[in-house]
Computed example of a mutant assay.
Amino acid sequence: AEEWSGRVMAFCRRLDLGRPFARCRTHYGTALLWRGRWAEAEAELTGAARALSGLRPQYAAEAVAQLGELRRRQGRREEAAELFGRADATPDGRLGLAELRLDEGDPAGALDLAGPLLGALPPGASLERCRALELLVRAATALGPAAGASRVREAARELSRLAGTVGTDAVRASAAWAAALTTLHTSPDGRTDDGTALRASPDGGAGEDPDCGLRRAAALFERAGDAYNAARARLDLAAALLARDRPQAAAGEAATARETFVRLGAPAEARRAARLLARAHRRPEPGLTTRQREILGLVALGLTNRDIAGRLTLSEHTVKRHLANILSRLGEPTRKAAVAHASRAGLL
């Protein structure tokens, strides 16, 4: 979209076509915003809003709403609120007001605005519904059980269906992110409360580990050129890792996210990443008992449970129980991952 819009804009400027193509500037400015080229986005969106204000006010409002989103990301919330208010006849304007509520720590207020907006959007408005569904998932998971688990799951499932229909990296990223966050929200052990697992996206597979889902979401956002949402996915991953007593891994994700936010010029998100990073640095890595370190060291050498049992004069059942406790303590899904984690943390 950015490349196509850029070529159209270059053509229009060469021929001095003026106002008839001002709406193209809105689309181009929006693409630049999502690609992290914020200074250029501001110039295009401001020019589009000015050119369209007298001729096509409804189209001018689209540019104004995108300017509001830029100001929101820049942490200039009062300006963002004024711009979103001017564009509240557009879905993006109303969505922006809901985003501001969430930024201000009012997830219930964000849900109150997002719910009716989603209901008013036709099924065919795929991209608009995608953004509204993302907000609903983020607000509902921030609110907690009061939001209703079934509501969150249905939003994530619709995003998964949209990923299959639209097929772009950006929508697939949203679906992977929403499925992971929803699974974490509905049950800490990675399952929904009806015993099923959410499918993260058409290529993600059923029951994908939430940490893997968030990593994949960040990678897909990055491939789509959306550094801002990639960094937000990394922050969600950092929080999930920290909740599972993996402060070293959490710190790495939070630091990467913070660097991105600083580079983009998103100070509020950079401060959020810095707070999470500080929490991760204060949290010590979970320790292992002497026996657990001994068993994990033998796993690292390639020994099977039977080999370890024979070496330590234990039953295979006891070895299996120790390994289950090690995986739980380190927050890792496999023996190989546990060995790698323990090696990085200096536990072996």
Rank of each mutant, 00 (worst) to 15 (best):
A274R: 15
D245T: 02
T141Y: 04
L288V: 13
T290M: 11
R282C: 05
R306H: 04
D245N: 05
P57V: 11
A140L: 12
H317N: 11
N229H: 15
R172I: 13
T165P: 00
A230G: 15
R14N: 03
S126Q: 03
V137T: 05
A81Q: 15
L241E: 14
G331E: 08
G265P: 03
A63P: 00
A146M: 06
G18Y: 11
A87N: 01
A224V: 09
L17Y: 09
A217C: 01
E128A: 11
D203Q: 12
R246Y: 04
L143K: 12
A217R: 00
R344D: 00
T289D: 13
A231E: 11
Q248P: 12
R23F: 14
H185P: 10
Y28L: 04
L184V: 09
R37I: 01
E158H: 00
E82G: 10
R293L: 03
P145C: 09
A176T: 03
A155F: 13
D226H: 08
A243K: 00
G302F: 07
T183N: 04
Q292M: 08
D193F: 10
G252H: 07
P210V: 05
P91R: 08
T192N: 01
L113S: 02
P145N: 07
A39S: 13
E78T: 14
S343T: 10
A31H: 08
G213R: 01
S160R: 08
A340L: 10
A233S: 11
R7Y: 12
A156P: 13
Q66I: 00
P286M: 07
E3K: 06
A337I: 00
A179V: 06
E128P: 00
V299M: 04
S328Q: 14
G115W: 10
R172L: 14
L111K: 05
H27W: 08
S5Y: 14
G205E: 12
E69Y: 09
A120E: 14
S174R: 15
A238E: 10
E99P: 01
L15R: 08
A231M: 10
P202R: 02
H185L: 08
G195P: 05
D112R: 11
L301F: 10
I295M: 02
L348H: 04
D209S: 11
S160N: 04
T186N: 10
R138G: 04
R76P: 00
E316L: 14
A80P: 00
F84R: 10
D211S: 07
G115M: 08
D209V: 12
T46K: 15
A224G: 04
